[in-house]
Structure formats: structure tokens, C-alpha cells
Amino acid sequence: MKILEIKDLVVNYGKVAALKEISLEIEEGELVAVIGSNGAGKTTTMNTISGLLSPTSGDILLNGKSICKIPAHQVAALNISHVPEGRKVFASMSVKDNLLLGAYLRIRKGEKKQVIADIDDIYSIFPRLKERENQQSGTLSGGEQQMLALGRALVSKPKLLLLDEPSMGLAPVIIDEVFKLINTIKKRGDMTIFLVEQLAYRALEVADRAYVVEQGNISLTGTGKELMTNPEVRKAYLGAGKS
């Protein structure tokens, strides 16, 4: 069953076309990646799904229902959790408070006890966060902040997890670690993951299927394995060269 379907999505920032008719779909339980160089329109896609941006035309369907006119805080209530580009942890607040805010809607529904238990569960995946529970999250390293952002998204118990550039600004060793964690989350099998990533090969390794975007258009699509060996991917990043 399709959990998310994007149909002919066009998004403009003012007069700039950031997305020029993108269509893609994600089956329940899949990990789908969108790869492409920066400026290609990946983050715009994510922000439009989660309601931070509204599209100029086209539609986004979640389980067959349009969500593109719903404001961000209501999209979050539909079990979609978005880990934004650049992590965006609440820097002045403690690690624990960030995690609690991730479960804001659940706590307001009265699931506080369950949330506390889930936070402990998160700590078992990211033991580093447990150690720094009361530390101001702005003082964490980039990798730790990425883990916190992931954890904050997971405590909301999403059906659909949106991951925007989890590698951004991280050192290669840390990127390894982050992608291992993404793989762990995937293997638990309880959510669909939509990953947007510049580092193509990292994303293709974990992805079931992937789309390549270039200048606001989808230029290629295939399974992770197929694309891994496709030379067109490299051209999408570094150009076709002088002709």
C-alpha cells in the first residue's frame, strides 16, 4: 500500500521555481531515498511534505488523503515526523527536554508514562544521549545533535519518518555511525523512511529505492543497487563536462 504519494509537485519561493513537477511514491515499510547535489530541491520537497511550505500546484497524498493544505503542526499529528536539515535541536534546552518536545502531542494526549518509557528505549539505541541527558543540547557535538534529532523524531512514534541530510556537516567517521543507526531503525521495521541525502552512495546503501533530482526535476530512478553502479549518478553531481 502506498503511504505517501507526491503528484506533479511544483513549489516556488517567491518567483523562484524550487521544484518543477516532481512525482514520486513510497510504499509502506520502504526506505526511499532522494539524492542529488545541493540546490537540487531535496529540502524543499521535505518541507512541503511536512507543511512548512505550501505548493504552487500538485498534490501530496498521505494514505490517499491530501495533506498539502494542512499546517505543519497538524501534519505532525498525522504520525509524520521530520528530522530537519541541519538538525535544528532546541539549543538552549536540555537533551531530555528536546526528547520530551518530540513527544509533545503524545504527552498532551496523556501518554506521559509511556513516553518516559520510550525515552529510555531511545537511550538504549543512543547511549550517548543518556550520558548527556541534562546537558544543554547546543553544546553537543554535531554527531550527537544528529542523534538527538533522530531520537526526538522517534519518540513521537511516527509511521513515516522524514530524514533531511543526516550527513550534513559531519565528519566521515560520524557519518558512518549515523547511517548505521538509520539502518538499525530501518531493520526494526515499524516505520516507513523517506531519506533525502547528498552523499549518494551512503544513501543508496541503505535505500530500497531511490530517485535522483537535478535542478528541481527527477532525472533518474531505480533500486538502491541499480543506481549504485549507474554512471549517470555521478554526472548528475559533477556535470557532463565540456562538450
Binding site: 547535489s37 566521515p172 558512518d176 548505521k180 549518494a200 552512495y201 544513501a203 546503501e205 553531481y237
Partner: peptide, 12 residues
């Protein structure tokens, strides 16, 4: 190429 596309290491 590595900086843009990442490495091929299949670490996991």
C-alpha cells in the same frame, strides 16, 4: 567524487 557522492564502503 567522494566529497560529493560519499564512499562505497559497505560497512554494515
Amino acid at each position: 567524487i567522494t566529497a560529493y557522492l560519499g564512499t562505497h564502503e559497505t560497512s554494515f
